[in-house]
Nucleic acid binder design. Structure first.
Lengths: 149, 149
DNA sequence: GTAATTGCAAATCATTTGCTTCGTA
DNA sequence: TACGAAGCAAATGATTTGCAATTAC
């Protein structure tokens, strides 16, 4: 893990601590895993990862993810999948994704989110508060398109 | 059900028939229900509806929804919920939604989707084909905000 | 020491599947 | 009549929960 990442990890753990959470092995492992991943991960994948598997009960992973989401550390995404996906919530902005409907691969989109600017307007029109949004693209990735024509 | 709705229902059934599906009671009930609803419905809700409950096995509803999605008649949405939501797929455009994170109410947004125009660009950049997308807003609805402050 | 956290097992919830029977084309 | 569709029950997969045993602070 990069120095930069370590830095962020300890910052995240500090935020958890401030929020009243305890510093446990599982907490650090889950956060490290999500920091190192370039796309959202499911609870199942996290629980099966080398860092957690065998050291931590799956139920603990689910509870941890839930708590981290409530504390605003993580963002939960649907991604049209039955299993929820989690990713670190960055304060400044959020990410949008493109998902392959054949192989399920997930890529983060490198673009300014085109919807960010609309939120205030939507909030005003709808009367909703604490607005947030999720934008995902679905399609067939080049590799899958090549494999099947 | 309005005349307009009946019209659309028979059109939809025709499209199903053309696609090789048979005209069954369950098919019509599911389509009618979705046509009359102003927001996406889950398989569970559909199976429990007066028109279907007791007349049709839940497994049939699941299979039917799956088939209808494959035939392009329905669109499946995640809506950050554990259960999948289904809505009629309109040819011309699609809808975006705003969901209350407290009470779960779902409203269709009355606006031109701001992302539609980006799809071609995203396709080009990413190399993905058959692009499609899902945009959802989440927040606290006026009623829930009022109830709790 | 105390409250937060974990492990383990059992319970739920949403969905899928196997297989036989039924009904539409 | 034949093949798609439905019914029923059992299997999956994801997640949640109860409760006693731990552990961080």
């Amino acid at each position: 893990m990069s120095e930069d990442c370590k830095q962020t990890l300890s910052e995240l753990v500090d935020r958890c601590r401030t929020g009243g959470m305890r510093r446990t092995q599982a907490l650090e492992s889950v956060l490290r895993l999500l920091l190192e991943s370039d796309h959202p991960l499911t609870a199942g994948v996290i629980a099966e990862s080398p860092g957690l598997k065998g050291h931590c009960d799956p139920a603990t992973v689910y509870r941890l993810l839930l708590r981290l989401e409530e504390h605003g550390i993580l963002r939960r995404l649907g991604l049209r999948d039955r299993a929820a996906h989690y990713t670190i919530r960055h304060s400044h902005t959020h990410d949008d994704y493109i998902v392959c409907t054949r192989c399920g691969s997930i890529e983060e989109l490198e673009m300014d989110c085109p919807v960010e600017a609309l939120e205030a307007e939507i909030a005003k029109k709808s009367g909703f508060t604490q607005l947030d949004h999720e934008l995902e693209f679905f399609g067939v990735c080049p590799s899958c398109a090549g494999a099947e024509g």
